[in-house]
Write a protein that binds this DNA or RNA. Structure first.
Lengths: 121, 121
DNA sequence: CGGCATCCACATGGATACTG
DNA sequence: CAGTATCCATGTGGATGCCG
């Protein structure tokens, strides 16, 4: 608390009570969450079923729950853009969009270290 | 397939069959995995219980299973460094260590966007 | 120390159906 | 379209105990 100054790196929590990795992992370490955020980054604001299609076979239930979770954490915003016919739009909040470096690193790593054949190892 | 040339960024899988995010998320999107990798990055090679202590109250069972999973994916290596008394050492493989940028980004993001009070929101 | 075995509670997730 | 409700199989995870 007394420091928290200017180092952008050195985020390791050596001996600290609170660890940013743990909480971040709790947030986006949920299998589908990174994918959803990625899709929203990639395709921009999307409708429910549009998102569902892009997230490769996730069920309505799980997507619904995931989106709710993401909303609660302020990463995703839901807007009703039309009443008749009923249309909603899910988009990333500023905080959600700020996850881009994380997602980018994940994707970059996956692209470098995981090949399709490897995924079923 | 015809491209895949020199862009270090632009890892988005627009219309691609295989998505690096999805597979990466399957790998390290497991709540404890990023933390374990982080601890190994942070503290270096560790014994089982040492790791267990550092991962903030994870149970033996879950840690054991997680480590097994990480080993199967070639991210973590297990070495028996002593027979009597019995001692093992878990360390990151080269591939595992290559996750550092991902973990760093996660930690950096968490530090910036998640405060302790926020984690229980 | 470094685990695995067991039991059991609860969370997760798919399928299906149905509503506004 | 945008979900929610229900049912149910499976997974996950904690507690405990034990063994090499």
């Amino acid at each position: 608390m007394t420091e928290g100054a200017s180092e952008p790196l050195a985020v390791w929590c050596a001996g600290e009570e609170w660890c940013p990795i743990t909480t971040t992992a709790t947030l986006i370490g949920k299998k589908w969450h990174p994918v959803i955020v990625h899709r929203l980054l990639d395709n921009g604001p999307s409708g429910f079923n549009e998102l569902k299609e892009n997230v490769d076979g996730i069920s309505s239930k799980v997507l619904s729950e995931s989106l709710e979770d993401l909303q609660e954490h302020g990463l995703v915003e839901r807007d009703v853009v039309n009443e008749q016919p009923f249309r909603v739009s899910y988009s990333l909040t500023e905080r959600g969009a700020s996850l881009e470096p994380v997602i980018t690193e994940m994707a970059a790593w996956g692209k470098e270290h995981l090949r399709p054949a490897e995924s079923e190892a």
